[in-house]
Write a protein that binds this DNA or RNA. Sequence first.
DNA 1: CATGAATGAGTATTCATTCAT
DNA 2: AATGAATGAATACTCATTCAT
Lengths: 204, 204, 204, 204
Amino acid sequence: MGLESYRRRVSEQKRRSIMEAARAEFQGNGFTHAAMAEIARKADVSTATLYKHFGSKEELFNAVIEESYALIGIDLDVADSSKTAKEALKSATNDYLNAQFGTGLNALMRAIISETSGDPEVGRAYLARGVGRRMEDLKTFIDRLVARKLLKKHDTEVSAMQVSGMIKENFIWPAMFDPDFKIPANKDKIISEALDTFLARYGA
Amino acid sequence: MGLESYRRRVSEQKRRSIMEAARAEFQGNGFTHAAMAEIARKADVSTATLYKHFGSKEELFNAVIEESYALIGIDLDVADSSKTAKEALKSATNDYLNAQFGTGLNALMRAIISETSGDPEVGRAYLARGVGRRMEDLKTFIDRLVARKLLKKHDTEVSAMQVSGMIKENFIWPAMFDPDFKIPANKDKIISEALDTFLARYGA
Amino acid sequence: MGLESYRRRVSEQKRRSIMEAARAEFQGNGFTHAAMAEIARKADVSTATLYKHFGSKEELFNAVIEESYALIGIDLDVADSSKTAKEALKSATNDYLNAQFGTGLNALMRAIISETSGDPEVGRAYLARGVGRRMEDLKTFIDRLVARKLLKKHDTEVSAMQVSGMIKENFIWPAMFDPDFKIPANKDKIISEALDTFLARYGA
Amino acid sequence: MGLESYRRRVSEQKRRSIMEAARAEFQGNGFTHAAMAEIARKADVSTATLYKHFGSKEELFNAVIEESYALIGIDLDVADSSKTAKEALKSATNDYLNAQFGTGLNALMRAIISETSGDPEVGRAYLARGVGRRMEDLKTFIDRLVARKLLKKHDTEVSAMQVSGMIKENFIWPAMFDPDFKIPANKDKIISEALDTFLARYGA
DNA sequence: CATGAATGAGTATTCATTCAT
DNA sequence: AATGAATGAATACTCATTCAT
């Protein structure tokens, strides 16, 4: 047992180290310009070991994306515990922006978009499992606010897209075209304004 | 002088033919996977001629992007001639979507985003001259509606981002991750809903 | 002592299992494309164990070839018991073809020829110990037929090469260039014709 | 016209230089171990130029083989001009051996056999267009000797294989297993003996 | 002024062999 | 004695760009 568990532990460590190196490389250079040799070097393993863990560059890229899905959840409890709809939505928005900007997700999204021309499946998968799941969470979030009568009854699938769009336009879209884009200083005002527009229509 | 003008005309034709081939290639394959040799072949010129006109792949790409800026203007007159704010905005939105989907701009935007990791200037230029200029147009458009008292007085810089975001979220964002994305059948309803939300806050 | 003999037995089994896996792999893919990892997998041992038994790929290959020498003997008794020279030679020829086609020797010979460019010793060893020994057997075989006066006295070293060549040209040579080559339907006629030519000169 | 013909000439020269380098490399190392970079180096061209001329390693290999087919023809006129069948056949045999040993065909054949396990088409093509065509020539050659009544009427398809086999067994077969194999000193005697056996059956 | 052949730098992937447990 | 994870060297092929004519 000692040997086996030792090996598993070492193997796990290498795998993690590869994943992190790969994430950094993909975020920095996009899929095409990321070099497997460089990832191996950063992860301090040989290329052969890298290929033992991930059969191909695509597979490694997908693993990195897959892992990133975990980062984009929304804390639904906030919808139940907040006093007002605006407070709840503000909190959810901040969580979202923190995840997006704190973990390099913007760069990863650029990489995915890059790869989409060459391999549409990558993009579609992200649409379904990344963007799509977050949108479902957001809808559920809003549904709870409706249930608590903090918002009017309405088509939450539609409204989720609207509030999401207003936020993305200000923070995510610019980040797609500028790797150095930082969250602007007047973040809170922008969010507040977006939520006010949202609430003008859907507020209780 | 006839000879000179003849030559200039021929040269102009080649330049055009190169631009068109390049646009097709970049839209189809993205920046990285577009091949200069293929562009030359499509344009029916030699690679050397291609390089006479455009010093590098980047330069050619920038020229194509530059040209695309012309496609994304908004017809401001509609703001003056429409009966209601909703009608005006609906018309502007449709113009926008037609330009975006009718001319392959989505694919070009994917290409720009791809290139942004490698050469941030490209993305920033697009942000300023492409996205930015359209946003200015939109602001002016809304200003005119305000002037006509079809909308309340308000911070139009903010509201322009909001309405733009709601539209992009539904139509442009998915297109970034799926080359085969088509405008959905319920387009009109989506637009109408977005505008209603907008008007709930900013309507006169 | 029981433990030691147990171990030796297990070790022998592993060795056998490796040899068989190696033979299959070499016959199927040739020397270069045979993969040590695959041989280990087929033999159900680790690569390290494989290397304990055979120090290198070449060594393993040589062991497989060595073993194959046993397959190419000629039954000399037939020369004494047959009624006619033709019958005797026909029988020997059939034995030869059965060994060659029944045990995958053709594929192994292709592998040896392949390796000959890289490591001439392999080929020369086969020439001496494989082909050569069979040729000696054949010479002895013919000598006995001469002794029984079923054939004229003659230079049997020369005649052995001749009859062997006529057979190989029809059956072995094509097999070198076509892995799917099967013994043709008119085998018996071809053999008979070859022997007739042989006997036209050397028959009593 | 000057430019075009100049280019064609240069291109032809490069192609020739590549072919020769490739032939040497393939003959020396077999297909698998031949390195495209080394061929390019020997031919004094870049690898890219090499790939302009030959789209892949396989293609280059096939071109080399194809070219070698030209070397293995038999001079049929000898069948008409010789005084005796033995003289004619001796001459044809010597031509064959000169071609085979003088141009490195043996090494090329080893390379083809090597590749046959991985890509059977290569071997089969050689069987049909290389070996096969020479066999047809030989049959025609013998047919002419029959026509001149220097040989009995007989099944020349069969006899061609027989004489060919007797020669190969002595000279070609050993060369397959030994890159350093040289034509033995008693070549003439071996040939003479083989032809005597042939003539014992088919001589007029 | 136009050509297209030539370049050379760059990269994913494989495999025989070793070594820490 | 056995394991199997790790190694590192080796190789076919592509593409933006230049240059001799």
